[in-house]
Design a protein around this nucleic acid. Structure first.
Length: 239
DNA sequence: ACATTAATTATGT
DNA sequence: ACATAATTAATGT
């Protein structure tokens, strides 16, 4: 349904792009050059699919800029957002999970720039590059932990607390500090929020409206800014 | 305590 | 003008 943009290799990828990213931070200049030379770079507009759940995992990816949401679709067709991935992280690393198909669908939440490599190279990356394996497994661990937390939330907390928690996570992981608060720095709709929290867009909308009246958050279309994180923390712990 | 339905209004191209 | 986003009220489980 989505047309994919044309793949193109960017002219010259600078080594400094990867130098400070955890999976590559222990590599020397020559190694980073080798990694980059094997990479394909591609720009995605917001809302484009990078790969689909269940598809054969032919490549793995590094998000250089932008944001990606990891989405699963239920048998009834509703989308559930598992988590958001910020720039600087790997994704589509099926091989690290012992799979040969992607476990979920990845959709850009904002305009993004993505590097990718053939999955064939995965084993040699793990073998040849110091810190690559340990760092990627660290982020895998964090993601599993986060998803676990959300499962507990879904089972134990009420909608208001879950939405509050979702907002807090979003501003922690993908928040941008502005004058009077922290803004989620990619476009996010009530629908998106509801898919993150397992509720309806209407409930999410009502909650945001109520919080806005209390001066807790501020939002314009597709933009949400948290003015008072502490009050959200209080809400998220229940009444 | 929430979802669903439906109607209405706002906002961006 | 049109599509998409957001709000609001009424009704249902």
């Amino acid at each position: 349904m989505n047309e994919q943009p044309v793949r193109k290799t960017l002219p010259q990828l600078d080594e400094s792009l990867l130098k400070h990213l955890p999976p590559f931070s222990k590599l020397d200049r020559r190694q980073i050059r080798a990694v980059l030379d094997q990479a394909t770079s591609r720009r995605y507009e917001a809302g484009r699919t990078i790969f689909d759940e269940g598809a054969e995992a032919g490549r793995f990816f590094m998000l250089l800029d932008g944001y990606v949401r990891v989405v699963r679709v239920t048998p009834t067709g509703e989308q559930v957002t598992a988590l958001h991935i910020p720039a600087g992280q790997l994704l589509g690393i099926a091989r690290a999970l012992g799979r040969d198909t992607y476990p979920a669908t990845a959709i850009t939440a904002a305009e993004s720039i993505v590097l990718s490599w053939p999955m064939l190279l995965w084993d040699s990356f793990v073998a040849d590059y110091d810190g690559f394996a340990s760092e990627t497994y660290k982020t895998v661990g964090n993601r599993v932990g986060e998803m676990n937390d959300r499962i507990i939330e879904m089972a134990t907390q009420q909608v208001e607390q879950r939405v509050a928690n979702a907002l807090l996570r979003l501003i922690n992981q993908t928040g941008r500090k502005v004058a009077d608060g922290i803004e989620i720095d990619f476009p996010i709709t009530r629908q998106d929020l509801s898919e993150l929290t397992g509720t309806t867009l209407h409930t999410a909308s009502r909650l945001l409206s109520a919080w806005e009246k209390q001066g807790l958050v501020e939002s314009h279309r597709k933009r949400i800014k948290v003015l008072n994180p502490h009050a959200l923390v209080v809400l998220s712990q229940g009444h």
